[in-house]
Write a protein that binds this DNA or RNA. Structure first.
Length: 424
DNA sequence: CGTCTTTGACCTGCGC
DNA sequence: GCGCAGGTCAAAGACG
């Protein structure tokens, strides 16, 4: 199975290389133009960085970015991650800590507000870490399609009650102090047209409702259309890992795989196998940095975490949620998160980025982790749906996580920057 | 036998 | 209208 994927990947990669060669050989001028654009982006980054450093009020502007129509790019350690088409849906993130609330909302306790409030904490905490907001040099934005970058631990969202959301939330939740995980969420408008704003999102939803009312088209089509229009909130994150499909504790069924444009790696589509739970996730690997996996969750689980009889997973993770995630908001589960993210939210920010081992110890001390000697991300291993041969949590949590760790530790400083590049 | 993956076909949205 | 790309469906096969 993996061989097939590899073959396909190689095939795509080969095609991609050929196309790239052709483009390079025949379009030198375009290459130059791209270089100029890159320089412009660099200049923009510098300008924004300077502006943000000189004004605390613009601090969040440094964290918020968006602009061009179809491409959001994250630069991780110099590699570009194309995030286009993953931020689709209005996201409601009434997290316990409100970290991800829409900045555009009037909520005084919005994510951004909290960030402002915690600015000093960020600064102090990041002093000892190579990972900080100061590292973000983001292009300025003129619209509401925002990407939030933060290395905050991910709070557990509550139910999808929603506020107006059109923002893209990218949360850098490092899987370790030396690795990077960028999570994000967004709305459909941001994906389909990054130049849109909240109004557009509302408009799309209204149009979907209108079509539903009309009922002129076949029910199936209408249904699909409505699904498209009223897409669930999405939450994406980047993980530097050799593993494509990380085990987040839920059971997923793969229902599709598509080749991604400009990427040799296919995108896999998964759906939660729990009846009535429409949560989906997409997994794709960065074409620029194959070690980076981008996982996008869509929707909110309508069942406890984890729903599945997956052995130790539930035993390991339930305490996490019981400690804060669910109790902080509601009984329902919303945006699915890998357990390492869920765990991180219970860790003091400083300790998280100062010393991963302290996080491991603390986690194990509260009974969250069974295997304190491995990694700070319990259960973050292969997804069984991927055909993992692991049959015990000890193997999965131990060995597989060990597989993840080395590469993460190897990468010392990962500066995350956002750039907006219109490749068109 | 149940679960899951694979994969071609189909649908939808969007740009030209 | 056409082509492209993303997303989904569903039949077939693999696997334990």
């Amino acid at each position: 199975m993996e061989k097939k994927i590899d073959q396909e990947d190689h095939h795509h990669h080969h095609q991609q290389q050929q196309q790239q060669k052709e483009l390079n050989s025949t379009k030198n001028t375009e290459t130059k133009i791209e270089s100029q654009e890159q320089q412009q982006h660099q200049q923009q980054k510098q300008q924004i960085s300077q502006a943000s450093s000189s004004s605390s009020s613009s601090h969040m502007a440094n964290l918020v970015t968006s602009s061009d129509l179809h491409h959001h790019q994250l630069e991780l350690a110099g590699n570009n991650i194309n995030l286009s088409s993953i931020f689709d849906t209005p996201i409601s993130l009434p997290f316990p800590y409100s970290y991800f609330e829409d900045h555009s909302s009037n909520n005084p306790n919005s994510f951004l507000d909290l960030l402002r409030q915690d600015q000093h904490q960020f600064a102090s905490s990041s002093n000892s870490s190579s990972f900080s907001f100061d590292a973000f040099t983001l292009p300025n934005n003129s619209n509401n399609n925002n990407i939030f970058f933060t290395d905050l631990p991910l709070p557990q969202p509550a139910t999808a009650t929603t506020k107006a959301e059109s923002s893209e939330v990218v949360n850098t939740a490092p899987t370790s102090p030396n690795s990077t995980s960028v999570s994000s969420s967004s709305n459909e408008a941001a994906n389909d047209n990054n130049n849109t704003n909240k109004d557009v999102t509302v408009k799309d939803q209204e149009e979907g409702d209108q079509q539903e009312q009309k009922g002129t088209k076949p029910q199936l089509k209408a249904k699909k259309k409505n699904q498209k229009k009223a897409r669930e909130a999405r939450f994406a994150f980047l993980t530097k890992s050799d593993i494509d499909n990380l085990d987040d504790g839920y059971r997923w069924r793969k229902y599709g795989q598509k080749a991604v444009k400009n990427s040799p790696y296919p995108r896999s589509y998964y759906r939660c196998t729990t009846v009535g739970c429409g949560v989906k996730k997409r997994v794709e690997r960065s074409s620029d940095d194959p070690s980076i996996v981008m996982t996008t969750y869509e929707g909110q689980h309508s069942h406890p975490f984890p729903m599945t009889p997956r052995g130790h997973i539930g035993m390991l993770t339930s305490p996490i949620l019981d400690h804060g995630a669910t109790t902080a908001s509601s009984s329902s589960f919303s945006i699915p998160q890998p357990r390492y993210l869920l765990t991180q939210q219970h860790q003091p920010y400083n300790s998280m980025y100062n010393n991963s081992l302290s996080m491991i110890n603390r986690s194990s001390s509260d009974g969250t982790f069974v295997n304190p000697g491995s990694l700070p991300f319990p259960g973050f291993g292969y997804d069984r749906s991927q055909g993992s041969t692991s049959t015990s949590s000890s193997i999965r949590d131990h060995g597989l996580l060990q597989d993840i760790l080395p590469s993460q530790i190897r990468s010392d400083t990962i500066n995350i920057q956002t750039t907006e590049e219109d490749k068109k």
